Amino acid sequence: MEWGHAMRELSTAIDHLAAEDPSEIPHLQLTQQLIELHWQMARLQAQIARRTSVRTPGD
C-alpha cells in the first residue's frame, strides 16, 4: 500500500473516532473498543519505533 494512501486511511479512521460521542456507546461495546484501540496503538508505536531506530550508513 502506498504510504500516502495508508496515512489518509489512518487519518480518516481517527476522524471517525473523534466524531463519536463515547458517552453514547454502550458500556460493553466501549470496553471492547478500548481494548482494540490499545492494541492498535501498540502496533502503531511499534512501527514508529522501527522507523526511529533506522540508521543510515556512516551513523
Results as ranks from 00 to 15, higher is better:
Leu10Cys: 07
Glu9Ser: 10
Pro22Asp: 07
Val54Trp: 03
Thr31Trp: 06
Leu30Tyr: 09
His38Asn: 12
Leu17Lys: 01
Gln29Leu: 15
Glu2Asp: 13
Gln29Glu: 15
Leu10Val: 03
Thr12Arg: 09
Glu9Trp: 06
Glu2Asn: 06
Ala49Cys: 10
Glu2Met: 03
Gly58Ala: 04
Arg50Cys: 09
Gln29Pro: 04
Arg8Leu: 12
Ile25Arg: 01
Asp15Pro: 00
Thr56Lys: 10
Glu36Thr: 15
Gln33Ala: 08
Ala6Ser: 11
Ala42Asn: 05
His38Ala: 11
Gly4Trp: 02
Arg43Met: 07
Arg43Asp: 04
Leu34Cys: 13
Gln33Trp: 00
Asp59Ile: 05
Gly4Arg: 03
Arg51Ser: 10
Arg51Phe: 12
Ala19Phe: 09
Thr12Leu: 06
Ser11Pro: 00
Pro26Lys: 09
Asp59Thr: 12
His16Cys: 03
His16Ser: 02
Thr56Ser: 10
Leu28Asn: 11
His5Ile: 06
Leu10Tyr: 04
Ala18Asp: 13
Pro22Gly: 09
Met1Trp: 06
Leu28Met: 08
Glu36Trp: 07
Leu10Phe: 04
Trp3Cys: 09
Leu44Gly: 02
Ala18Cys: 10
Gly4Glu: 07
Gln32His: 14
Arg8Phe: 03
Thr12Met: 06
Met41Asn: 11
His16Asp: 05
Arg50Pro: 01
Met41Val: 01
Gly58Ile: 01
His38Asp: 14
Ala42Tyr: 06
Arg8Thr: 11
Gln29Cys: 13
Ala49Leu: 14
Arg43Asn: 06
Leu34Gln: 13
Ala19Gln: 15
His16Trp: 00
Ile14Ser: 02
Asp59Ser: 15
Glu9Ala: 12
Arg43Lys: 09
Ala19Thr: 11
Glu36Met: 10
Glu9Pro: 00
Thr31Ala: 15
Arg8Glu: 08
Ser53His: 07
Thr56Tyr: 11
Leu37Thr: 00
Pro26Ala: 15
Arg55Gln: 13
Trp39Gly: 00
Thr56Met: 11
His27Lys: 14
His5Gly: 05
Gly58Met: 04
Asp21Tyr: 08
Arg51Pro: 01
Glu36Arg: 15
Gln45Met: 14
Thr52Trp: 12
Met7Gly: 03
Pro22Ala: 14
Arg51Met: 15
Leu37Met: 09
Ile14Gly: 00
Glu9Val: 02
Val54Thr: 06
Ser11Asn: 11
Arg8Pro: 00
Thr12Cys: 05
Pro22Leu: 08
Gln40Asn: 12
Met41Lys: 15
Leu37Phe: 11
Ile35Tyr: 08
His5Phe: 04
Ala13Leu: 00
Gln33Asp: 04
His38Phe: 10
Ala42Lys: 08
Asp15Thr: 02
Glu9Gly: 05
Pro57Leu: 05
Leu44Ala: 06
Glu24Ala: 12
Thr12Asp: 07
Leu30Asp: 04
Val54Leu: 13
Ile35Asn: 07
Gly58Lys: 07
His38Arg: 13
Arg8Met: 07
Thr56Pro: 02
Ser11His: 06
Gly58Arg: 06
Met1Glu: 08
Leu10Arg: 08
Gln32Asp: 13
Ser11Gln: 08
His5Ala: 13
Arg50Lys: 15
Ser53Lys: 12
Ser23Ile: 03
Thr31Lys: 13
Gln47Asp: 03
Ile35Thr: 12
Arg51Ile: 13
Glu24Thr: 13
Ser11Gly: 07
Ser53Tyr: 08
Leu37Gly: 02
Ser23Gln: 10
Val54Pro: 00
Ala13Tyr: 00
Ile48Phe: 14
Gln40Ser: 15
Ile35Gln: 11
Gly4Tyr: 02
Arg43Val: 02
